[in-house]
C-alpha cells in the first residue's frame, strides 16, 4: 500500500493557502484581459486596475485581496492509500494544521470568528473540509478561498418541480441583480441544481472550481444533459452580462466572467437550486499527491 506522511500533507496545504491567495490562475487572467479589451471608460479602468493588482501581488508576494477568506479544502482520498498521521489524531486535524501554518507563515489575514461571540480563532482555522473516498492510491487536494463580500451574496431556493429552466434562470438573474455592486464584479458564478438543499449548495460551490473556459459539465443519467447544461450556462452568461452591472458595479458588459452549472438527480416533488457567487478573484489551486 502506498504511504504518505503527515508532514508532506501539511506542507502542501500550507503552500496551497499562500499560492491561492497570492496568484490568480492563468485561465482567469486571460478572461480578464479579454474583458478589458472589450470594455471602455470606467469598466476598462476597473479591469486595468485588477490586472495591475494581480501583477503587483505576484511581484511583492502580497495577497491579491486583503480578504484572504475562509479556506475550503476538498480531499479525494484513494482507497489504496495509507496516510501516516504521525502525532495527529485525524486527517482533519492534519489539514487544519496545514491551513494554520499557511495563514501564519504567509502573512494572510485571520478572518475566522466564533459565530456568536465573534471571538477570532487567531489562525484562520477551522477550514471547511469536504472529503470523499475514490478508487486508487492518490490524494487529490483542492483548495478554494472564499472571500465573504461575495459569499454574502450566495442564494439558495427550493423551486417548484415545474419551475424548469425558466425558473432556474429567473432565480439566478434575480440573485445576481440583488448582489449588484457588492461582491466585486465581474463575478464568477457557480450553480448547483438538484439533489437536496445541501447537495445543491455543495454543487454550486464545486462549480467554482471549474476552469473559466472549460467545456466540461458534470452530468448523470439522461443523454443530452451535458449539451443542455452547456447551453444553459452560455445563455445565463449572456443574460447576466446584459444586466449592465459591470466591473465594480460601475456599468459595462462584463458582469460575470463565467457561469458553471453542476446537476444531480432530485426528488419528484422539488427542484433545489443554489447560486454561489465569487468575486472576480476566484482563488483556487489543486495538487495530486
Amino acid at each position: 500500500m502506498r504511504k504518505i506522511s503527515a508532514e508532506k500533507i501539511i506542507a502542501v496545504i500550507s503552500r496551497l493557502c499562500i499560492q491561492s491567495n497570492c496568484q490568480i490562475n492563468e485561465d482567469l487572467i486571460t478572461s480578464l484581459k479579454h474583458a478589458r479589451g472589450k470594455e471602455q471608460g470606467r469598466a476598462r479602468m476597473v479591469l486595468a486596475s485588477i490586472l495591475k493588482n494581480i501583477k503587483i501581488a505576484q511581484r511583492e508576494k502580497l495577497p491579491v485581496c486583503q480578504d484572504t477568506g475562509m479556506a475550503i479544502v476538498f480531499l479525494e482520498i484513494g482507497d489504496k492509500l495509507k496516510i501516516d498521521l504521525g502525532e495527529f489524531l485525524s486527517l482533519s486535524a492534519l489539514v487544519q494544521e496545514g491551513v494554520r501554518r499557511g495563514y501564519q507563515s504567509g502573512y494572510l489575514r485571520k478572518s475566522i470568528v466564533e459565530p456568536l461571540s465573534r471571538v477570532n480563532t487567531e489562525d484562520n482555522t477551522p477550514a471547511i473540509i469536504r472529503e470523499k473516498i475514490v478508487a486508487g492510491n492518490r490524494l487529490k487536494i483542492k483548495l478554494l478561498i472564499k472571500g465573504f463580500g461575495a459569499e454574502n451574496m450566495a442564494k439558495t431556493s427550493m423551486l417548484r418541480p415545474d419551475a424548469g429552466e425558466a425558473g432556474i434562470k429567473r432565480f439566478t438573474l434575480d440573485s445576481v441583480k440583488k448582489a449588484g455592486s457588492h461582491p466585486c464584479p465581474p463575478m464568477v458564478i457557480g450553480i448547483g441544481i438538484g439533489g437536496t438543499m445541501q447537495k445543491a449548495v455543495s454543487l454550486a460551490e464545486e462549480a467554482l472550481l471549474e476552469p473559466v473556459k472549460s467545456k466540461r459539465a458534470y452530468f448523470r443519467g439522461c443523454p443530452g444533459l451535458k449539451s443542455k447544461i452547456k447551453r444553459l450556462e452560455e445563455e445565463l452568461l449572456r443574460e447576466i452580462n446584459q444586466l449592465n452591472i459591470g466591473p465594480a458595479g460601475l456599468g459595462g458588459e462584463t458582469t460575470a466572467l463565467s457561469v458553471k452549472i453542476k446537476t444531480f438527480p432530485t426528488h419528484i416533488a422539488g427542484l433545489p437550486v443554489a447560486v454561489n457567487i465569487s468575486c472576480w478573484a476566484n482563488r483556487h489551486q489543486e495538487i495530486i499527491l
Binding site: N53, V64, C65, A248
Partner: peptide, 13 residues
C-alpha cells in the same frame, strides 16, 4: 469615495 474591490495589493502601494 469608492475604491475597486479585490485590488488590495495595488492600494497597499
Amino acid at each position: 469615495f469608492i475604491a475597486f474591490g479585490g485590488c488590495g495589493a495595488l492600494y497597499s502601494q
